[in-house]
Design a binder for these strands. Sequence first.
DNA 1: CGTTCGGTTGAATGTTATCAATCGCGGTGG
DNA 2: CCACCGCGATTGATAACATTCAACCGAACG
Lengths: 294, 294
Amino acid sequence: MSVAQTLDSNTATPTPPARSAGSGSRTHKIWSNMHDVCNLLRIPSGTFVGDDDQHFQHVQFKAGQRIHTAGQPFDMLYIVNCGFLKSVMIDEFGNEQILSFPMKGDLFGIDGIHTKKYTSEAVALSSCDIILIPFAKFAALGRTNPVLETALYGLMSRELIREQGMITMLGSLTVEARVARFLVSLSERFSAIGYSGKAFNLPMTRREIGNYLGVTLETASRTLSAFNELGLISVDQRSIYIHDINALKTLRRLPPSRARIEQQEKKAAAAAASSSEFIQVAPSAAMREQLAVV
Amino acid sequence: MSVAQTLDSNTATPTPPARSAGSGSRTHKIWSNMHDVCNLLRIPSGTFVGDDDQHFQHVQFKAGQRIHTAGQPFDMLYIVNCGFLKSVMIDEFGNEQILSFPMKGDLFGIDGIHTKKYTSEAVALSSCDIILIPFAKFAALGRTNPVLETALYGLMSRELIREQGMITMLGSLTVEARVARFLVSLSERFSAIGYSGKAFNLPMTRREIGNYLGVTLETASRTLSAFNELGLISVDQRSIYIHDINALKTLRRLPPSRARIEQQEKKAAAAAASSSEFIQVAPSAAMREQLAVV
DNA sequence: CGTTCGGTTGAATGTTATCAATCGCGGTGG
DNA sequence: CCACCGCGATTGATAACATTCAACCGAACG
């Protein structure tokens, strides 16, 4: 049930200066070429004519470190080679809003292009290996390489669509549906990068989940517990096991709380009646039928 | 108090086929050159070397007509020359979410770049004059013209940032703050395109406002009424007059409903005591002080 | 002149935030 | 080694809030 990712504690080094290229003790500094980068980004890569002498630097970050901060001059895009991060926007009132959780293969830093300053900050949630992509260099390559240019426009457009989906989620889905969708999305992304899509550890806290989904940490926690009760998932602290991903995909809202309470009372009564019997491990199909999928 | 924009009824011609270039009776078909386009988009325009033979076609739409629909093959970007529209995303459950209200100078259709199909649809809220920008042509021009290329990346990045702001708004602001921000944003955009920022008509219905802000139409209506009560704005149907834009800018939440009710009772009592007196036209400063700006 | 649509408002209901208490784990320091 | 934090997570009780259902009004349109 446990999973590949090992998370450093978030308590270490709250906010060290960013971009310290050769900082760590053993800096397994690596360089990636264009081919690696295209593979990571899932760009057709195709035939790069003689551009293979282009190299891009890797940098390591520990949990809690910032890759870039809001307002910092923009010159780089970043690609995650491994590890987990959060991208956070801070509005004029100081409200923090998590915009995404970049992981392997994800590009971030795009928001800096317009004003030449990053408008968000990126923070490592675990140990991370990040590839630096100087934007000017990348754009120049695109000018002579139509495939790359198209890919770059496509990546920006894709990010735009992702955010539109985020807006739609926040604007029109119930909390349950948002949490369900969040789990499905994580599952699919883990699968895509070679981890298990059924059993994984959450790289983020309940507070971060809640912030991302536009609710409080308590509501996020309760919703996960509710899914657990219904047998859709098993959750224990950070570890998740997904039992019924289809239910999560189609879930729109949980049965009204009154019905849920009655359901629980029934369960409690049944448990009391047969007190010496097995604990119900896998929840009944009947309970799952309670899901409204209107 | 009424304003320049005149709105056609939304009832006319629900969904006629899009892109009928020479449809209307008097087709005031115009062509724009690169210079006009750059002015509209607020691109430095600068010195376009001999590219001034590039021309872009205008098309007119009436209220209710679609400019493009979700799933339609992508080949164009669109720039609003005049009129008001809404951009709507429809998710897999059929939920509609309004993503933006494009108006003069705004670019839309960017979401089609990635998958070569539009993922959203754009609908005219009033009579509109739209400029067609073939994306391939624009990208090709960018390849030989660094200023234009930078501008195009910048526009996409700007749109990304706008949507991030939208996410932050939906995720972390109260309903009151969202409506306030919506009004401020409209005001600033109207000012930017030469209309009054204090007195204007809303181009959209309460339902559309509510949808955009992630609440029901009733809540949107009530919130506008509350602002009216507090004297921040005057609202009557579609017409808006902004009395205190600073209050709207800094507003985070209204006083708790109990305090508001007591306030109203006080007002009612005062009105009853001096029943034959003037109706209180401009609300008291005391009432406005009730705004929590923590 | 009736019908439809957009808008407003009230009352009841359901949902979420807030406040608070508890638990368990991992680290630190005595 | 163990006691003692501090933090993340869970859960309960209450208050605040938004939605829903419903009624009503007025303007636009056929």
